[in-house]
């Protein structure tokens, strides 16, 4: 249906709840990629990301899904569900592993700049380093970076998803960026990083 292209998430949700399959699929297609990437960045696992994406929309199908437009956008609400599901997976300790890019379903990312091979290599290394640094962040900082910096979710939606005030989103983001810069700096200058370590005891 052509009208779905301009319909808001809330309008699609209303049509979906009245049994319109096309509206449900339009909503899914609009939101699934962001949710999938969020779950993938958070969990580092393709199967978990797939499960989470599916569970988010199954939760939306339930009559008592609990979405309240007064409290925020549907996008923020969906990210909030995804976050809870990811945390459940992480708490089980099954999937807090490195990004699994060996899976058959993994689509190799296209780099933004590909003309200069040297630049491409540098970029690829830089991107990998940043991705590793994000993965290594503590969970509360990782989720805010993934949401706001990678998925470009606005602060209000991020606050809904993280179930915290906007001020907390800002402060966590600030702290997370500081941690990332620190880690990237250490990776680029390992000697300097080693210099910051203090020996506690000499056993020799």
């Amino acid at each position: 249906m052509a009208s779905t292209a301009v319909e808001t998430d809330d309008e699609l949700l209303i049509r979906m709840q009245s049994g319109d399959e096309e509206a449900f699929l339009a909503l899914y297609r609009r939101r699934q990629a962001g949710l999938f990437r969020f779950a993938l960045h958070m969990s580092g696992s393709m199967p978990v990301a797939e499960d989470v994406t599916q569970e988010v929309f199954l939760a939306l199908l339930r009559e008592d899904c609990g979405f309240d437009p007064e409290r925020g956008t549907l996008s923020g609400y969906l990210f909030g569900i995804a976050r809870k599901l990811v945390l459940r997976h992480l708490e089980r300790g099954r999937s807090d592993v490195a990004l699994d890019t060996d899976s058959d379903d993994f689509v190799q990312p296209e780099l933004a700049v590909v003309d200069d091979p040297l630049l491409d290599l540098t970029r690829r290394e830089g991107i990998d380093a940043l991705r590793r640094a994000v993965q290594a962040l503590p969970r509360r900082y990782r989720e805010v970076v993934v949401l706001c910096d990678l998925e470009e979710v606005d602060y209000a939606d991020a606050a809904v998803a993280l179930n915290c005030p906007i001020g907390t989103v800002r402060s966590r983001l600030h702290r997370a960026r500081g941690l990332l810069l620190e880690r990237l700096h250490q990776e680029r200058n390992p000697r300097q990083a080693l210099g910051t370590l203090k020996p506690v005891r000499c056993v020799s």
């Binding site: 399959e21 449900f24 297609r29 699934q32 999938f36 929309f57 830089g126 990678l150 998925e151």
Partner: peptide, 28 residues
């Protein structure tokens, strides 16, 4: 860092749930 984020995001832009998820959800 912001440029790095944009590069990572651009690299992941094509990543999405496999089609079987949509098929399962449609059935559900």
């Amino acid at each position: 860092l912001e440029a790095g984020f944009r590069a990572v995001a651009a690299g992941c832009r094509r990543m999405e749930a496999p089609p079987r998820v949509e098929a399962r959800l449609r059935a559900a």
